[in-house]
Design a binder for these strands. Sequence first.
DNA 1: CGTTGATTTGAATATCCTCAACGTGCGTGG
DNA 2: CCACGCACGTTGAGGATATTCAAATCAACG
Lengths: 278, 278
Amino acid sequence: MHDTCEKLLNCREETSRAIGLAPRSVVHRMDESDPCTRCFQSRSCFQAALLLDEGVDRLVGQTAAVRLRKGQRLFAAGRTLDRVYAIRTGSFKSVMRAPDGRQQVLGFHFSGDMIGLDGYAAQIYLCDAVAVEASEACEIDARALDAAARARPIVQRRIQTLVADSMRRAQQNLLVLGSMQGAERLAHFLLDLSDRHRGLGLSSREFALRMTRKDIGSYLGMYSETVSRLFARFENAGLIQMTRRHQVQIPDRTALAALLGRQPVSLRIVSANPLAAD
Amino acid sequence: MHDTCEKLLNCREETSRAIGLAPRSVVHRMDESDPCTRCFQSRSCFQAALLLDEGVDRLVGQTAAVRLRKGQRLFAAGRTLDRVYAIRTGSFKSVMRAPDGRQQVLGFHFSGDMIGLDGYAAQIYLCDAVAVEASEACEIDARALDAAARARPIVQRRIQTLVADSMRRAQQNLLVLGSMQGAERLAHFLLDLSDRHRGLGLSSREFALRMTRKDIGSYLGMYSETVSRLFARFENAGLIQMTRRHQVQIPDRTALAALLGRQPVSLRIVSANPLAAD
DNA sequence: CGTTGATTTGAATATCCTCAACGTGCGTGG
DNA sequence: CCACGCACGTTGAGGATATTCAAATCAACG
């Protein structure tokens, strides 16, 4: 394990508890500027390792990995679920296609996330998984996974947790789409990303948005122009700062969080609304 | 079994195939005006029976049933999932509460539906289930269910199907909320209800909406006033007819379905748009 | 360095929300 | 069984928000 990584692993214990592995097995990516590929890999692959009930060390570098370029599809909705995936590097979006051709982005997934498990019960993929940027994913054979689950309760439980999380997330998103307005949705989205980046040991204060405005819009149920305008408003209000186009800074999470949990606009104290459009 | 029921069971085979029981075991409620309680009960209880891997006949009348009045809660989000439920009579809504007190209706459930299974993987209820009208539900003990699942693959599979359905439904609703406008959402909702009523052996052409406009609004991500106005527009356009306030008629499903799969308004041929507000 | 696709910005418009007032019908209790 | 009260539903008007189309700007990439 890298020496530099050691120093920066501040949320090891927490993660270890959440996932149920010994702290020693938990390795985080530490920083954007120094990807520290080896440790990063173990972070995402140890998920696979846990699921397959093997040692992390044995697995790193052994699990079959798929390389995808931006826009390529990892799996397609409707096909038999023969594998699930642990994202090693990069990021993906889950996309649902309506018969009429419309698309809806259901979620974004980053390194260390498992994808495909929303279709685990159905035994088919429920949505497409598309690479948002050049990415790598570890393949986990579904049969091997089932076998491991039957043999070891902890694996069984881990799968259940992952399936449960995708269910929870879907329902949470229903709340977001059904009862929040644009600004609140975007704030929620940014804070969620921030949290997840912290969970990966990355900065929760500054991170990259590698997906397009259109994807964000689809995910949040609005158009890319609206997303763009909201970003501009957030920036004017000092809630965020954009360095380069796909890099966002959140100087003060509290300020952003203040947009959440607001009842309809008219109930807001208008003068205190940092987003009033002039 | 009622004699009259026999005559009206036109979709028995289909349902039997979908659910995997012999056609003889499938009994439908046939008509609003004659609830045919006994057969109706077996329709919802045979779900429980299948899950518990017992004979339908043995179970009807034996499964513990809870009676709820309008507005009462069957289970609460966050609590340990110790039971799942098969709805015998009436209808329920799943409601999610945000920390700030906002509520989002996640779905509606009718007789014969199983509820609670969205939280099966999480082992806690993910949402509240609230009776929309006076209702009865059969209790199914989660431990007994787990035991049955371990013992019999068919029960295992059946649970998986139910869990998968709730996942699918959640994702489908994300598409509805994320990429449809009001009129399209309502049309989708009505057609969905229509389909589900047909699945129960009831009329898909005319049925009751026992939930309030506010609930419909919450479910569809809009306000009750908007729901009301949309109903009015639909009626003016001849797409539906409302007999009494909670009874809706769909004379021609095709006309309603034509509202679906539309791209943004500007792409519609305006003169052909039956909903143009004058 | 030019081309392409993504993003931003502007202006006009549609949609939906919000508040308010009114109508309706259901259930309760007399 | 009737009358009453109250929650639910409808309708209207005005305004906020988001969409739509168009045009300009920017960034990435060969």
